[in-house]
Write a protein that binds this DNA or RNA. Structure first.
Lengths: 114, 114
DNA sequence: CAAGGAACCTTGTATTGCAAGGCTTGATCG
DNA sequence: CGATCAAGCCTTGCAATACAAGGTTCCTTG
């Protein structure tokens, strides 16, 4: 597996909003985010990707956080979608569809293949 | 317009292959690449994006180049898709569909709108 | 008290897209 | 002839992202 390959570049600017979209359903902590990305989307991300990403979402106000103690060890920081985070997801959705259509115009046999 | 916004991140790793896909039809020089991206895909890119990108395609062997004089002024460097460039486009296509499906799994109401 | 696991964070690197500015060629105009 | 202009190409510096590697804290278990 290439350290920095084709798939890695495709992810840029997308994973962030995948996380926000998942938070729409329920608050999650870091480990759950990684697990859900893997099980729901076959998207494998490491902690080195997720934690800086979550930090940025927080500093941009897209999420709010809350510490919860656990019986099993270290406490967890749970992330919850904020109002402006909901708007960010909606904006991304629209932009994603626009861009997808653009690329489909350029690629021969746009997007209609299995 | 934000210097580095939502749309800019979405493009990463995609424009490169849009260019290769366009070269599948005919050899092009830098200015034509910029123009075609704009007219066919509504994708606005500047010279500062395209020329380093074309350089990289060349150093990776995805394209071959040829200088042609013009009657109008400076000569043009034309880019032609190589054999390995064709394979790169095919690989990208497959990876793009995979990733699209993954994201659709995560986003509520995946891709079926409008 | 040592070992280990769960959870979190930080640091450094590579890649990409982009703006700004510079260089070269040939035509045009004073 | 010299200056100006436009087309075409390239380089430099910056910001954002994904990632690996390594470190820290907390609690439990032996």
């Amino acid at each position: 597996m290439p350290i920095d390959g084709l798939a890695t570049q495709l992810r840029k600017g997308v994973i962030e909003y995948c996380v926000l979209a998942m938070l729409k359903e329920a608050p999650l902590y870091g480990g759950e985010v990684i697990q859900l990305l893997r099980t729901k989307g076959q998207i494998l991300v490491s902690e080195g990707t997720i934690y800086p990403l979550l930090s940025r979402l927080r500093s941009e106000g897209f999420v709010e956080t809350e510490w919860r103690d656990t019986p099993t060890g270290a406490p967890r920081r749970y992330y919850r979608l904020s109002r402006s985070g909901q708007k960010a997801v909606a904006d991304f959705r629209a932009e994603r569809f626009r861009f997808r259509d653009s690329v489909n115009e350029i690629f021969p046999d746009g997007g209609r293949q299995k």
